[in-house]
Amino acid sequence: MNTGSNEPAEAVDPVAGVKGVKPEQPLGSRAPEFIQARRALHLSWQVGVFVVGLAVVVAGIIMLPLPGPGWLVIFGGMAIWATEFVWAQLVLRWTKRKVTEAAQRALDPKVRRRNIILTTVGLVIIAVLVGVYVWKFGITMPWKIKE
């Protein structure tokens, strides 16, 4: 801000946050009002959300060693839990912050240059190892292997 300027300082709404930045949603249940109004219905709603989220998280954990998008499914289960539970909302906010920080670090020119160099060196090492293997053992197609 220019101190010699006659322009008023731009006000920032504490609820909306910084201009151009999407404010975070308030913590708490996102169940419909008619469900939140009835304690027994809300409790059964929370149990249902927990069971569905648990099933998705378990499926993601199973996918970690098996083919499939394990981490993506786990975060999907956390998002299901976050519709109802504050602890899951806090975990997702923390995760989103960390992923954003990592993405910003990865866009740094020095880090990008280092990553490109490391990838190139790794590919050269793999190419040399494959070349040595082919030179020593040759290439035999799987359907021509004699038992």
Rank of each mutant, 00 (worst) to 15 (best):
V52H: 00
A82R: 04
E84Y: 01
A55C: 04
L90H: 00
I61E: 06
L54D: 04
A82V: 12
L72N: 12
M63I: 00
W71G: 15
F85N: 08
F75C: 06
A59P: 04
V86L: 10
I61Y: 04
P69M: 11
I61L: 14
P69A: 15
P65L: 12
W94R: 09
E84R: 01
W87K: 00
I74N: 07
F85M: 13
G70C: 11
L90T: 01
I80F: 03
G77C: 11
V73P: 11
P65S: 13
L54N: 05
V58I: 12
V91K: 00
W81T: 04
I80H: 03
A88P: 07
P65T: 11
V56Q: 05
G77E: 03
V52Y: 00
V91F: 10
L90E: 11
I62V: 14
V73D: 08
G60L: 01
G68W: 13
W87G: 10
P67F: 07
G76S: 14
W94V: 06
R93K: 12
F85R: 07
V91D: 02
L66T: 10
A88M: 07
A79C: 13
M78P: 03
F85L: 14
P69S: 11
A79E: 00
V52C: 04
L54H: 02
I61V: 09
V56M: 04
L72Q: 09
F75T: 13
V57D: 02
W94S: 12
L90Q: 06
V73Y: 07
V56I: 15
G60C: 05
L54W: 03
G53C: 05
G60M: 01
A79K: 00
W71Q: 12
L64S: 06
V56F: 04
V91T: 09
L66I: 11
A82Q: 13
A82N: 10
V57L: 07
V91I: 07
V86S: 10
A88T: 03
A55D: 08
V86T: 14
L66W: 08
L64K: 07
V56C: 05
M78K: 01
V91W: 06
L66R: 08
W94D: 04
P67I: 05
I62L: 08
T83A: 14
M78W: 08
I62F: 06
G53H: 00
I62K: 03
P69H: 08
F75L: 15
I80C: 02
A55G: 11
P69T: 09
P69I: 11
E84V: 00
W94Y: 08
G76M: 14
